[in-house]
């Protein structure tokens, strides 16, 4: 893994950790207070990885489920990358808990197609909340591409690598979310192009407090 050009200092990593604590704290509060989605986001975890290490990282992070739905949404701007909403859809982790409060009124679809569309919209909101709050603190704004659903069987995440440039290294910001019966992960993966910008933005963020 070529880390030489992307290494962020421990100090910058600490700032990023702190920034994410604030961002996700704000996101959780706003999700509950403003848009009536009750979820808990854990203290975020930050990892520096090569893309090819990503499948292993995800399968180690997530318990084995028979099927997992991943919603991938790319965001563009100074801060650039992908948000992944990883949601196990096995019987033990019932998606419907997440939907009961979603308030969707839909008659056109049934069964699995309906669930995927709903997970896609919920994922869209959660990824947007997390990425949006980080962007806000870093004083920038991003635009998003439409969400895509990826199905993963038996924790085989290798297909994920194809979504990214495999030569790249990334910073993975992980948070576990919990909602009644359901839980999963949100991973925010930065694009290598935005790492230099991110380092600058983190320094500026700290300057405001010094």
């Amino acid at each position: 893994m070529n880390q030489s050009n992307i290494v962020i200092s421990d100090y910058q990593k600490d700032i990023l950790q702190e920034l994410m604590n604030i961002a996700f704290g704000n996101a959780t509060a706003d999700l509950t207070n403003i848009i009536d989605i009750h979820i808990e986001l854990s203290v975020p975890d930050i990892e520096l990885l090569a893309i090819r290490e990503l499948p292993e990282y995800i399968s180690e992070t997530i318990d084995t489920y028979s099927e997992t739905v991943i919603i991938n949404q790319k965001f563009l701007g100074d801060f650039k990358g992908s948000g992944l909403f990883v949601f196990p859809s096995s019987s033990g982790h019932d998606l419907s808990a997440l939907f009961e409060e979603s308030g969707f009124e839909c008659s056109q679809l049934s069964g699995s197609s309906l669930k995927i569309e709903i997970v896609m919209e919920i994922g869209n909101i959660l990824i947007g909340a997390c990425v949006g709050k980080i962007s806000e603190l870093l004083n920038t704004s991003v635009i998003y591409s439409p969400p895509q659903a990826i199905f993963v069987k038996e924790n085989k995440y290798d297909s994920l690598v194809n979504l990214f440039d495999s030569s790249q290294s990334v910073i993975v910001m992980k948070t576990r979310f919990q909602q009644k019966k359901g839980e999963g992960f949100i991973l925010i993966i930065t694009d290598q192009d935005s790492l230099d910008w991110l380092k600058d933005a983190l320094d500026k963020f700290m300057e405001a407090y010094q």
């Binding site: 403003i34 848009i35 969707f104 569309e117 896609m120 909101i125 949006g132």
Partner: peptide, 16 residues
């Protein structure tokens, strides 16, 4: 509200 709170971009599919 989500757009005003987070600056989200939301997509509403015809399928749903």
């Amino acid at each position: 509200k989500s757009v005003f709170a987070f600056g989200n971009f939301l997509f509403f599919s015809q399928k749903l």
